[in-house]
Nucleic acid binder design. Sequence first.
DNA 1: CCGAGTTGTTACTCTCTGGTAACCCTTATG
DNA 2: CATAAGGGTTACCAGAGAGTAACAACTCGG
Lengths: 193, 193
Amino acid sequence: MRLPAPARREQILDVSVQVFAHRGFHSTSMNDVAEAAGVTKPVLYQHFDSKQDLYMALLEEAGTRLRNAVRKAVTDATSGKEQTERGFKAYFRWVADDHDAFLLLFGSRANRDEESTIAIRRITAEAANAIAPLIAADIEGEHQEMLAHGLVGLAEGVSRHLVERGERFDPEVLGQQIADLAWAGLRAVHRNG
Amino acid sequence: MRLPAPARREQILDVSVQVFAHRGFHSTSMNDVAEAAGVTKPVLYQHFDSKQDLYMALLEEAGTRLRNAVRKAVTDATSGKEQTERGFKAYFRWVADDHDAFLLLFGSRANRDEESTIAIRRITAEAANAIAPLIAADIEGEHQEMLAHGLVGLAEGVSRHLVERGERFDPEVLGQQIADLAWAGLRAVHRNG
DNA sequence: CCGAGTTGTTACTCTCTGGTAACCCTTATG
DNA sequence: CATAAGGGTTACCAGAGAGTAACAACTCGG
């Protein structure tokens, strides 16, 4: 079945995010991707310079979708607590909806070389930076950042556990719970620190 | 420099944990490992059946050290809160001491194929199972497990952030803080859930 | 209905690297 | 000083997979 170039490009992105998400970067050959897309290898190279290039495009897209989802949710919240709740809910909604993208970025099969490591680290760092200001302002910056990365890890750990076991979950309920945990936890650190 | 077989085996393990930790599985060739150990490839195959076999041995060792460290610390604690504190402190002490092992298991360069994914998942699951009982008993089992994985992720996120940026930290102080966060957080989930 | 541009395929090349066969040192021991 | 025995090396094989050159086939405007 023939497709116009832009459509084919989109289809390749759609298909390859699935393949890479489940088998990882190194275990997936360009032939695998091509086969999954119903074409042959050279077609891939008409749209992407290299395997790395294709992979980076996927990471970029996934990261953007995550960022937008959370940013949009957090925007019109008034209190810090509300931001936290909305943020986590939006995050888990993204995980539920964009399953393969989650696995691509944070799944344990996400084999990473130099370049992709940096890309993923950047995405994680962005998430952490978005969270950092929520943490009590009288904690010093470096510390804030560290705790923020902890909370990102918290959400990541929960999601990975659920997604990799294929368990269903309600993003609203889950988000509320984890937000509660995070919020109360942060206040405790604040008090005791 | 010639070495007796057991010593050579140990040396290979020592050296390769460093190499794999920093460059990841797929980006590290057996020649790289051999070179780092100051020998040639066939020597490696006198001690390990395959690259995978060597890698699994490293994961196994690292996992055992982590498990022992935490288990030992938690053993003679009376209250759940004390267990939490000791557990996290021991964990961060392990991270600080066994740097490369941490990166091997949880670093973002930890490229994983089928087999190693399973091994690492098992280690993480063990950690989570150790934590699960600490979580208020009136939360149902599946939920407990999920929160436990979240806390593992929390510690992982904090460690990764610190280790990959090469920042120094005091395991006692850090462990106390994260334990505070976890403990207070769990109680909040308990109340609100 | 024709031909130019675009989509796709076949059939390679080339490199990298895991793994091995065959051989060479060094050391200890009677 | 002969001789195992074990530690180590050189030089190779074979497979996998990224990337490409050359060619085929569809389709759409004129």
